[in-house]
Computed example of a mutant assay.
Amino acid sequence: MSASAPSFVLPRPFLKWAGGKTRLIGQYQPYFPENFKTYYEPFLGGGAVFFYLAQQHPCLQAVLTDINPELINAYCCVRDKVEELIELLDEHQSEHGKDNKEYYYWVRSRSYKTDTEKAARLIYLNRTCYNGLYRENSKGEFNVPIGRYKNPNICQKDLLRSVSSLLTSAQIEVRKFDEILNFASTSEDFVYFDPPYYPISATSNFTAYSRDNFQESEQIKLRDVFAELAERGVKVMLSNSNCDFIKAIYSDSQAFKRVPIPKQIEISASRGINSNSCKRGKVKELLICSVEIDT
C-alpha cells in the first residue's frame, strides 16, 4: 500500500517559545505597516510575526536573526535539511515513548556533532520540556526539566515541511540585535524587535532565554537602535513590558529629538510562565511603534 500524500498545513511556529506572539497577532495586526519590501526580526524566537507576515506578503524578503546559535541552527536545518531532520525526530519520538524521563535527561546531557542532530535535539527538548521554555545555566547548558506531557507531538512532519518551504528564501543568521544598523536603512524596511522583556518582578527573569541576561543597559542600547532606525525612515515595532522604565525610555525627547516620540499601545497578553502560579494570567504589555515623518 502506498503511503498517503502529506496534508497541507499552514506554516506557523514549529517551536514553543516563552513569550511567543501567536495569540497576539490579532492585536498587532492594525499596527503592521502596509508597504515594505524587507522584513527584519533580530530576536527571532518562535517567529510568530514572521510566519504571519510571510503569508500576508507572498514575495516578502526576510532576514531572521538571533544571538542563540542553537535556535538559528534549528531554523537553518528546517529550511535546508528537513527530511533528514524528520528522520531524527521520528527516532526521538519512538525512544521517548519507551521511557520518557530517562530518555529526556539522557538527550539533554548529550553533545551532538552534526547540525541536524543538534537541531533535532533542540526540537525534541522544546516539545517535551517544561512549558517549552528555553533557558541556559551559566555554562551555556540547557537546564529546563522535563514537562508533564502524556503524548507530546515531537515530530510534526507536515508542519516542518510547510515551514521549510516558507523559509526557502529567508536569510537566517546568528547576529546581535544592534547589527541591524548595518542593514535596515530605508522606508522599504520593517523591523520588529521582541527582546527579552524588562523584568517587572523578582521572578520575571525566569523566562530568560540565554545565559547572557538582557540588562537595563541593553534595553537602553536597544532604544537607541530603535531611534536610529526611525530617523532613517525605517518602520519599527517593538514589544516589551508595560512598566514605567520602558515607558520612560521610549518617551525620552532627547533620544527621539529628530523623530516623533513613538506610539505606545497597551496589549492584553496571557502570561503562562511564573514561579508563582497565582501570578499567571492576563497582563498588559506594550507595543511600541515608530511614527512616520511627513515629507
Rank of each mutant, 00 (worst) to 15 (best):
V82Y: 00
S239D: 01
N68C: 11
P6T: 06
R211M: 12
Y124I: 03
P58M: 06
V225D: 05
L10G: 07
F206P: 01
I265M: 04
A120H: 04
Y250N: 01
S217A: 15
V163W: 07
T186W: 03
L60P: 02
N137K: 02
G19S: 05
T38F: 06
L229Y: 09
R108C: 08
F183K: 07
N240K: 02
G26T: 11
L53K: 10
D252A: 06
N68T: 07
Y149P: 04
C59D: 14
V259E: 04
L10P: 07
L64C: 09
Q61S: 15
N182T: 06
D66S: 08
S2H: 09
Q93E: 15
C129A: 14
N153L: 07
C243G: 01
I200S: 07
F183Q: 13
P262S: 05
C243L: 00
L125R: 12
N143T: 01
Y31I: 03
K235M: 08
D178I: 01
G46K: 03
F50T: 05
S7K: 14
Y124N: 08
C289Q: 13
R148A: 13
N240D: 00
K279H: 08
F50G: 06
E70G: 06
C129H: 09
I67C: 10
T65L: 04
P199A: 09
L160G: 06
P11Q: 14
R121N: 07
Q93Y: 05
Y52G: 07
V225F: 06
K284L: 05
K157R: 15
E136V: 08
D99G: 12
D90Y: 05
P42W: 01
F193E: 03
F256M: 12
Y192A: 01
Y28G: 03
A120C: 08
K157W: 03
K150A: 14
N131E: 02
L125G: 05
S165I: 02
K37R: 14
E91P: 01
L122A: 09
N131A: 06
L85Q: 02
I86D: 00
C77V: 10
V63N: 12
F245D: 02
N143V: 00
F8G: 05
Q215C: 07
S165W: 04
V236M: 00
E292L: 07
T203C: 04
I25M: 11
D224P: 06
F214C: 03
I249L: 12
F193A: 10
G233W: 02
I293L: 14
N131V: 00
I25K: 09
L85A: 02
A54G: 07
W106F: 11
M1G: 15
N137S: 07
V283Q: 02
F226R: 12
H57W: 05
S241Q: 01
I25F: 11
